[in-house]
């Protein structure tokens, strides 16, 4: 049984004129525990929508999505939120750190929604995770005082602090220069693997996509696997299309 299993997933959005625009259509995808999957696609291809569906931030309008073999379409709002917090860690392109909170407070923030011991020891866990991403000495710095690379490392620590089973990274290197992006991505892959979490990355960056064990291309809402060595072609196609 796969950790995440999507079958025939579709997602339509209603346009201002009332018509429906299919963003995702017939997406089939399974993700195993600890696996690293990357998805490439041009802007507007539905990558972020797919990531939102995977992370229970959005609901598909067609198909079935099984999480640990359990259908997600029948989940109530409360259970859905809880499951999201317990299962997924998010890394956003724009970092989305909470302004004016220290790095430690940012990393501890997801644990505010945990229970029991996990909640009570949140600051210690945050500090340990910051140490792991090499930002222990900057634990008391606010995001405004951190570089882009440092901010994304804080975001990675934050995504992993609750021990998620899946990390969903949406263009994690999109706001960073090439060198910093590579370092951050290497760190993300390494720390995620250490924690035994699956990593699903959406990216334009060929080298980032190449780090994944399985690679997919999303085009006009349709997901197709990319054979080893095919990532370059997919990326090239993306840039040409864009």
């Amino acid at each position: 049984m796969s950790l995440l299993e999507l079958t025939g997933i579709g997602r339509d959005v209603r346009l201002p004129d009332g018509s429906l625009l299919p963003v995702l259509a017939g997406v089939d995808l399974s993700v195993e525990p600890g696996e690293h999957v990357s998805i490439v696609g041009r802007s507007g291809s539905g990558k972020s929508t797919l990531l939102n569906v995977l992370g229970l931030l959005d609901s598909p309008t067609a198909g079935t999505y099984l999480l640990d073999g359990q259908p997600t379409d029948s989940l109530g709002g409360r259970r859905r939120s809880r499951l999201r917090g317990e299962t997924f860690g998010f890394v956003f392109q724009q970092f989305n750190l909470l302004p004016r909170r220290t790095a430690e407070e940012n990393v501890a923030a997801p644990l505010l929604y945990a229970r029991g011991r996990e909640f009570l020891t949140r600051n210690r866990a945050a500090r340990a995770m910051l140490d792991r991403v090499g930002l222990g000495p900057r634990a008391l710095s606010v995001p405004e005082k951190l570089s882009g690379g440092e901010q994304q490392r804080v975001a990675i620590a934050r995504a992993l602090v609750r021990g998620p089973r899946v990390v969903l990274a949406d263009e994690p290197t999109g706001a960073l220069d090439v060198e910093t992006g590579a370092a951050v991505m290497a760190l993300l892959a390494e720390v995620t693997a250490e924690n035994g979490a699956a990593l699903v990355t959406i990216t334009h960056d060929l080298s980032v996509a190449a780090l994944a064990g399985r690679r997919f291309r999303l085009d006009h809402g349709r997901l197709t696997p990319v054979a080893a060595g095919g990532a370059l072609a997919a990326a090239t196609s993306d840039r040409t299309d864009a």
């Binding site: 409360r78 939120s81 999201r84 989305n96 909470l98 929604y113 609750r162």
Partner: peptide
């Protein structure tokens, strides 16, 4: 609003 969205991604329920 962005901050609220980020907190929702952490698992914050509507009630919370």
């Amino acid at each position: 609003i962005r901050e609220i969205g980020v907190r929702r991604s952490f698992g914050a329920t509507s009630a919370r």
